[in-house]
Design a protein around this nucleic acid. Structure first.
Lengths: 246, 246
DNA sequence: CGACCCTTTGAAAGGAATCAACTTATGTGG
DNA sequence: CCACATAAGTTGATTCCTTTCAAAGGGTCG
């Protein structure tokens, strides 16, 4: 009982930290958010827990672990549309889009918090600023999609990988999950290929190029960046699209 | 003077039609929307009227013509991230994301209506349902981006083109701009290549395949669909992502 | 009619996918 | 603690699709 309460507070803390990043919250808003009760669940790795066609009645907040959004071609090939780090609200869009047009699943074992749509909507009735904050989160998701469209269509395989590593670094760093030069990264090369629209072979070879150039090391679930400037230059990376400090 | 008023009403009509598509509007909301004043402008073809780095203070509504959102690589190659049809609000995201991370421009000569951010925000204060309707529009934009990510990464050139034609048909049809089997379509093959991440040569050859198969004819600014079922099958097209009637 | 823009065609080059092994970690049970 | 199984990473050779380059053809409009 008290364990559950404390875990719901983990979700609240994570959310407060996230929303404060776009500016100070009013004290009423802080109280509104703190009063929300989240249903916290631990999920095993590699599990799609929201499916295409679903009509969710609640939203989720990622507390710990790595989550992907993906879709499949008729031939059964998976395309990963986004990668989510702790603090993200990966299915906020289900608040206003009834039917899921994609899957959401875990990469590593994850701690995820759920809250019913109607609880959120009632909260929004009480605060237009909170509404704007959550809306903004979905707009940033969209900005990431736009950047992915350019990256996957216009950059070569090594550039794409460099850009992706830069993006992941920035997003992990924004929630304080980096240390010194690196961060934990649980995806396999095959999954990264499904993000970048590349075969596993291409990912492997591109990674070797980045490693040989002394830009980045990716070994056993951990990425370390050795030369940010040259890595960002290689990936034509400009962090504006992340809207971290608008 | 009266001309300006009547043109602002064009914008209101377009917007009402658009928002009603996601369900009946309350009478208060209809009145709120009808009281908005739009600044209507005619823009020439091929003009970027919002630029990367801008900090817009107003949003726009496309009344007539075709608009694209695009971004450029360091090498100067353009990637088109979305194509907008009348009724779309292409830069609604600027309400909550200060800095533009892309360009918005006309393809054909366009009629565009502008409204200040603060007018919209004050309207939202008065109606949480209107807020939700506008939020939903941005969520549909995001759903389109997600579909584009899959299409451009996983489909071959002819499939991509077929998918794109299907999408354009559905979106033109949703605002009543189709007749019989076709619709006006002002983009060049080069632009379509910039949408699909293909060279103009590939677009041309893919189009010839679709034409030879009797699926679609694209000639002099007009697309006609001859066999929807086979075109949709070729493009693996499933309209769910458009969320036209959730 | 001629300039310009767009479309079409052919040939060659290139980058990534595919196919097929092989190697290296990680983990399990006897 | 080692034999074995499994998952992930690495490598080489080949194929294929798309790009690139170059040029010709077709409409449209002043």
């Amino acid at each position: 009982m008290s364990a559950v309460t404390s875990r719901s507070e983990d979700a609240t803390d994570m959310l407060l930290r996230r929303l404060r990043a776009s500016g100070r919250l009013g004290s009423l808003d802080e109280r509104l958010l703190s009063s929300l009760h989240w249903d916290v669940v631990d999920l095993p790795a590699k599990t799609d827990f929201i499916h295409e066609g679903d009509r969710p009645t609640r939203c989720c907040l990622l507390i710990d672990g790595l989550i992907i959004r993906s879709n499949f071609t008729q031939g059964g090939e998976r395309q990963i549309q986004s990668v989510h780090v702790p603090g993200d609200l990966p299915d906020l869009q289900s608040l206003h889009l009834r039917q899921m047009d994609h899957y959401i699943g875990t990469v590593s074992p994850c701690r995820v918090a759920f809250i019913p749509h109607d609880v959120l909507l009632r909260t929004f009735e009480k605060s237009s600023d909170l509404t704007a904050r959550f809306w903004r989160e979905t707009l940033i998701d969209a900005a990431l999609y736009r950047a992915i469209i350019v990256r996957n269509a216009r950059l070569g395989s090594t550039e794409r990988l460099a850009h992706f590593v830069c993006e992941m670094w920035c997003r992990f760093d924004a929630v304080g999950l980096t240390d010194r030069s690196g961060f934990p990264f649980a995806m396999t090369q095959e999954m990264v290929g499904q993000v970048l629209g590349l075969s596993i072979v291409s990912v492997n070879r591109s990674m070797q190029i980045l490693r040989a150039d002394g830009l980045v090391v990716w070994d056993r679930g951990r990425i370390d960046i050795l030369d940010w400037d040259r890595l960002a230059a290689t990936g034509q990376f400009d962090a504006t699209f992340l809207h971290l400090n608008d």
